[in-house]
């Protein structure tokens, strides 16, 4: 009889041989559409599909939801950056405008003969009936009552009250202010005072004086306050009544008082003209 050991060896050799033959035969014949070949497709594939879909589903959730938390965070961050950039652009634009205004003031400062002091408007008149502004320069900076306040476009007003660091400027559109002025073209003289609706009136202009719409008014310098030659405004309407010795002249100021932000205080007041002293 064969020993157990011999039988085991024969068994192993048979299994190996059957395996080799089986492999060789199965690779030579096409895979059947039925039987075990189809088992995988029928049973496993749907599970594979379900598992894959599940993975895709959770993957999508991860990508589109959990990852969106990151996207939302990023969005918040970008929006903040955008807001900061917009604010910076606004600030830059504001600085650019201020720069242009200040350049204008500096050019004007160089052109004007008198010594001037730049100041910023920090407050406007709370009363609707009066026109004044508060500037951030006062007695300590050399500002005194009565000094004229100008900008490159023309005359703004005069200082009427001063504290250590601030001053109150009565604008030329206030009815209590007066500027001795001339029509630049014809030298017709009169007094410009404030009127309602941010306008001025050119008073005491003789009827026979030649004043036309569009004429430019300049300071005569005869009032001893405003430097001669500075622009006051432009004639916007002329009315000659049938009686009376004066004509009614409405003037649009050269200065836009709604947007007045920086001004120059003329520290050295102009000397009165010799003819005025006489």
């Amino acid at each position: 009889m064969l020993s157990k050991k011999t039988l085991l060896m024969v068994g192993v050799i048979l299994v190996v041989a059957l395996n080799v033959i089986g492999l060789s035969l199965s690779n030579r014949q096409p895979v059947s559409d039925y039987g075990m070949g189809r088992f995988g497709l029928v049973v496993i594939a749907p599970i594979q599909s379900a598992v894959t879909s599940g993975f895709h589903f959770f993957g999508d959730i991860w990508r589109h939801y959990f990852a969106l938390v990151d996207a939302a965070r990023q969005n918040d961050h970008l929006q903040r950056e955008l807001q900061q950039t917009s604010a910076r652009i606004d600030a830059c634009s504001e600085i650019e405008q201020a720069n242009q205004r200040l350049r204008g003031l500096i050019r004007f400062q160089q052109e004007i003969e008198q010594k001037v002091l730049p100041a910023e408007v920090v407050g406007k008149d709370p009363s609707p009936w009066f026109r004044s502004v508060i500037i951030d320069k006062g007695r300590n900076d050399g500002v005194a009552k009565g000094l004229p306040v100008v900008i490159p476009q023309g005359i703004a007003g005069q200082v009427v009250a001063v504290s250590q660091h601030y001053a109150k400027v009565l604008l030329i559109i206030d009815a209590n202010n007066a500027v001795d002025a001339l029509v630049q073209r014809t030298r017709a003289r009169g007094i410009v005072t404030g009127a309602p609706d941010n306008e001025c009136i050119f008073k005491y202009v003789l009827r026979q004086d030649d004043v036309q719409e569009g004429d430019i008014l300049i300071a005569s310098g005869l009032d001893g306050i405003y430097p001669k030659g500075l622009r006051v405004g432009r004639v916007s309407a002329v009315a000659r009544q049938s009686n009376g010795i004066f004509q009614e002249v409405t003037v649009t100021p050269a200065v836009d008082f709604q947007t007045l932000e920086e001004v120059l205080v003329v520290i050295e007041s102009p000397r009165p003209e010799p003819e005025a002293m006489e």
């Binding site: 407050g123 008149d125 709370p126 009363s127 009936w129 009066f130 026109r131 004044s132 508060i134 009427v160 009250a161 109150k168 009565l170 604008l171 206030d174 209590n176």
Partner: peptide, 12 residues
């Protein structure tokens, strides 16, 4: 305070 900040006649 308002009187000092405005161009109104003093004491208004």
């Amino acid at each position: 305070a308002m009187d000092s900040l405005s161009g109104v006649p003093q004491g208004y």
